[in-house]
Design a protein around this nucleic acid. Structure first.
Lengths: 329, 329
DNA sequence: GTCAGCACTAAGGATTGAAGAGTGCTAAAA
DNA sequence: TTTTAGCACTCTTCAATCCTTAGTGCTGAC
């Protein structure tokens, strides 16, 4: 479809534009291509014709179109090694073993956000593979308690619970015993169901105050097994990018970052590292979203990076790849 | 210092400016004050002379100066009741008892942020009054475990821990038993100390693998008792305010919101609801910070609201007061 | 296929002019 | 002594205009 020289040219234009954020003119490439600007213009107009380049106005230089970026990412760009500097910054975090995995991920994404002036998102859920290891309830007073749920993969959720009426300690103990006997080993996405249809009747049989205690605990565990952690880091870093210089655009993008339901849509299904450029993503036509799934033990989630279409694809991919590798240890 | 008519005038100017975000002209107040614009100009120029008003340029209308806002807040503004609408939106949250307190606070601050187009901050710590109720450790495999610490006021912290070398289950159990026997009742700010100087020697005496297990647990509990929760909500809402219409300003403010160390400085010492206008706060000369301490059971923290100096002080104060009241139940 | 040359286009910046919204000041009226 | 009408003056805002500059497209020759 496009010959070698055109490929080289496209590569150069994409990379120049990524670096400078200004349309690339034919003249600026004369020296590099060792020919006149007219020749380059001929090639450029061909690349424009087939949709890989575009102009911002009739007499401007060329910038890559969405398809141009796509072609660059798919066919031209070479995988890059991390620079020593980038690697160093991340490694110190992964070598700090006292951090929880989720904190490690969040911290590294913070760093990536700074390194690349993009915004990063970490979506965590505990996966279906998690099974309940233990349920623990610590009473506080006669109407409050803490309910904890621990899974075999090391995930912990806890909720402060208030009952609608005072309860008896002994009855609470009984209830928890029953739950523990019946629930251990249940995959967490089946916990609510199991509580309602299998465990509730048993409790009803043995415990007097079953209504009050069961309801409170059911709510706590139901919530705990259905929550999704969302962490957006470095939302302001993306403002360093010259394309976000209108307050309108900023408002638009940032309010999307604030919208949890919207952000949680970023969740990735595919297992590789995938690049969604412009309209290919649901987020905004002016950004590129790069995302990948991770899973370690029972923690499972998506990490994503959001930046201008004009982003350093090779570097960003190298960084994400490094993180992904490290999560899988 | 200023007579009644001047007070009325200042009040009107502040409130008009808060509403419209435009300098208030003498002519626009003629009808309201039932006199000519010249008379109003005379009064205005006096208020300017004593520093309560200022102009944006020689022939503009007047806007309140920082001192003007201060005077308004201290001497003129009347406490306002919440409107039914505002109250309704908040009440539904406070009546949902299945939420943890901290979630309730965060949710209500989200709503306030939206209602007022300000950004809100919730800083939570578990106070010194929290005492350890129980320490629980759940082993995952021979090098991983979950360490949990529960306080009498219902605060829970947990960490996934990895030891430097494999450990024996039995030894872990012994260690945890010892810790539990000695640590219950300790105020959480003394936990690290107690572990190091009183508990470590005992463990050393009875447990073979004490180094490996103790170190891992010490790190977990040390971190857990020193952490501070920071939650910034509605950072993008503040962008609706017309004063934040330059990308420079936006960048400046938002990057401060992203800086956790900076945000944690907002912590409030005083117990009332306090208003810090412009240079009175550490945040930025162009904003007002309103903050107050809350404490409920052992949870203690600060809630703050950050917006333009031109904010609806009466409404914001009423909203914060309502939350404060509700936290204290 | 490459290139020099030229006509053409749009953006960006500087300048100008007119309109509008205010003020300050002064002298007269109340 | 306070209020007011009137006027000169200041500054902002907006649109129109002009110039410069950085590009392109095209053509015809090499």
């Amino acid at each position: 479809m496009i010959n070698e020289r055109q490929t080289e040219l496209l590569k150069k234009i994409v990379e120049d534009y990524i670096k400078t954020a200004r349309p690339v003119s034919s003249k600026s490439l004369c020296e590099w291509m060792d020919c006149s600007s007219a020749t380059i213009r001929n090639e450029m107009s061909y690349l424009e014709e087939i949709g890989l380049l575009e102009k911002t106005h009739t007499s401007s230089g060329r910038i890559p179109s969405q398809a141009g970026y796509r072609y660059y990412v798919d066919h031209i760009m070479e995988a890059k090694k991390l620079t020593g500097e980038d690697m160093l910054k991340l490694q110190t975090i992964f070598h700090n073993h006292s951090l929880m995995l989720s904190d490690t991920i969040i911290k590294s994404m913070e760093i990536i956000s700074e390194l690349t002036s993009c915004t990063t998102v970490v979506l965590g859920t505990s996966s279906k593979e998690n099974r309940v290891t233990k349920v623990e309830v610590v009473p506080l007073d006669d109407q409050h308690m803490i309910a904890m749920l621990i899974t075999d993969k090391g995930h912990v959720e806890h909720r402060n619970v208030m009952t609608d009426a005072p309860y008896e300690m002994e009855e609470l103990r009984q209830t928890v015993d029953i739950i523990n006997k019946l629930i251990v080993g249940t995959p967490i996405d089946e916990v609510s169901e199991k509580l309602e249809f299998e465990i509730k009747p048993v409790i009803g049989k043995y415990v007097k105050q079953h209504e009050v205690i069961y309801n409170a605990l059911y709510n706590a565990f139901h919530e705990a097994t259905n929550k999704m952690d969302i962490k957006v880091t470095g939302a302001s870093n993306i403002l360093n990018q010259p394309e976000f210089n209108s307050t309108e655009k900023i408002r638009e993008i940032l309010s999307k970052f604030d919208d949890k339901d919207f952000v949680s849509n970023i969740k990735e299904e595919d297992s590789g590292i995938n690049v969604y450029i412009g309209s290919e993503n649901e987020f905004d036509d002016d950004v590129t979203v790069i995302k990948t799934k991770y899973s370690f033990g029972g923690e499972e989630g998506t990490i994503a990076l959001i930046g201008p279409k004009r982003m350093e694809y090779d570097r960003v991919l190298a960084l994400l790849d490094f993180i992904k590798q490290n999560i899988d240890e």
